[in-house]
Computed example of a mutant assay.
Amino acid sequence: MHSSQVRKQIFFLSALFTFSFVFTTSIVWVWEPGHGDIQNYADAVWWWFVTSSTVGYGDLVPVTTPGRIAGVLAIVIGIFGYTHIISVILNYLQAKFEEEERGLGEVDYKNHIVICEYTAFADELIKEIQKHPDFVERKLVIAGALVERAPYSQYDFIYGVPISPQVLLRTNISEASDVFVFANIRFSDPDLKTLHVVSRIMEHNTTGTVYVELNNEEHPMLETLPRKAVIMKSNDLLKNALKHHNFDLERYWDSKLSS
Rank of each mutant, 00 (worst) to 15 (best):
S20N: 01
I231H: 02
S255E: 15
D248N: 11
V197Y: 10
H204I: 05
V181T: 06
T194F: 08
E218V: 13
H35D: 07
Q94H: 12
P62K: 02
G56T: 10
V88Q: 04
I10W: 06
V230R: 00
D191L: 02
G58D: 06
I142A: 06
L125Q: 01
Y152K: 05
W29H: 12
K110A: 10
F157E: 00
I231D: 01
G34A: 01
F187T: 09
E98C: 09
A95S: 11
F157L: 03
K243W: 10
V114P: 00
N215V: 05
L192E: 15
H2G: 14
T64L: 08
G144M: 05
V167D: 06
G78I: 03
T209R: 10
V179A: 07
F135H: 06
N246R: 15
S164A: 00
H35P: 00
I185Y: 14
E128H: 00
N215K: 11
R186Q: 14
D236G: 08
A143Y: 05
V72W: 10
G34W: 03
I77E: 03
C116F: 03
I158C: 06
G160P: 05
F19K: 00
V22Q: 05
Y152E: 03
V210D: 07
V197G: 05
F11G: 10
C116Y: 06
D178N: 11
L192R: 14
S199D: 13
L238V: 11
